[in-house]
Amino acid sequence: MAAFDLTGKTVLITGSTDGLGRALAREVLDAGATVIVHGRSPERIEATVDELDGGGAVRAYRADFASLAEVHGLADALVAADERVDVLVNNAGIGADGGRELSRDGFELHFAVNYLAGFALTQRLMAEDRVGSRIVNVSSLGQQALDFDDLQLEQGYSGIRAYCQSKLAQILYSFELTPQLAPAVTVNALHPATYMPTKMVPSPISTLEEGVEATFRLVADPALDGTTGAFFDGLRQATPDAQAADAEARRRLWAVSEELTARR
């Protein structure tokens, strides 16, 4: 894996108490950065911080991304602590197994956890000028076009479709956010690797190291300083589902997302 220097940088990785996020936290810490760990389980957070053993270079926050109130609370806590995030990695997510479930706010669970939570957190941190240089959205090659007449998949639910729709939503958001932040902050999305050995994958194909390498590159590679509004398949730039290029679909998703994540 390429060696990059992140000395003096702070990197927030959501969903960093397991799988890709936890392994990426190790890599980022070893590169000299301060790591902000996020998870929903106090026990997993404590175990992750102990494992990283970064002294003052590791801080941790808890929030369940199935609750927008907790996402907003996480943002509040980061702002109150005067955290300055050089790189934000929206990695937290759930897999495609199981039947249709709802978040605490009544939204389809994949859409809520994999997409809306990251949207709400990113928007708040950007509004507070808390993100310094890069946003990395951990998406997937598993993508299906969003049905704006049934975003919550109340008709003909499929776990695979729910997952793939939420992952494409991340990419639409990335592409729509890009021109608003350029050139100061870059925004890219990626498929880290195919079926890595995480708790969501019973039969791995790729290694966790492959996924970490691809994600770490978007976090830290100085050669990508000017690269923004792109989607990567591992280490290669790729073309996502055609809906990502639909400006009207991107604007429509943004408007819906603002409405759904607004504090009431």
Rank of each mutant, 00 (worst) to 15 (best):
G15C: 08
R40Y: 14
T48W: 01
F65E: 02
P202K: 11
A2W: 08
D149F: 08
L253I: 07
F4D: 01
L78A: 09
V49C: 08
Y173F: 15
V58Q: 05
M200I: 14
L260H: 10
A230M: 13
L253P: 03
I171L: 00
A245L: 11
R26L: 09
R161T: 15
S67T: 03
A63V: 05
D246S: 10
C164Y: 05
D86S: 10
R59W: 01
D147S: 14
D241G: 03
T34C: 11
A75R: 09
A80K: 13
S41Q: 10
G142P: 04
D97K: 12
A162M: 05
V219D: 04
R251G: 13
S140E: 05
M200T: 06
A249V: 13
A127F: 00
L109E: 01
L20I: 14
L172W: 09
I135H: 04
L74H: 06
R251L: 09
V49L: 00
G132D: 07
Q123T: 14
G32E: 08
A25Q: 07
E154Q: 15
T186V: 12
L6V: 05
R44H: 13
F175Q: 01
S41Y: 09
T10V: 15
Q237M: 14
A162G: 08
S158L: 09
R100L: 00
L29W: 02
A23R: 13
L224H: 14
P179R: 11
A262T: 07
G234V: 11
S166K: 10
L102Q: 02
G132Y: 08
L121N: 02
D82I: 04
L52M: 08
V35T: 09
D30T: 15
A31P: 01
R40V: 08
D86T: 12
K199W: 00
V201S: 06
P42E: 13
D241N: 14
A3C: 03
C164N: 14
G226F: 05
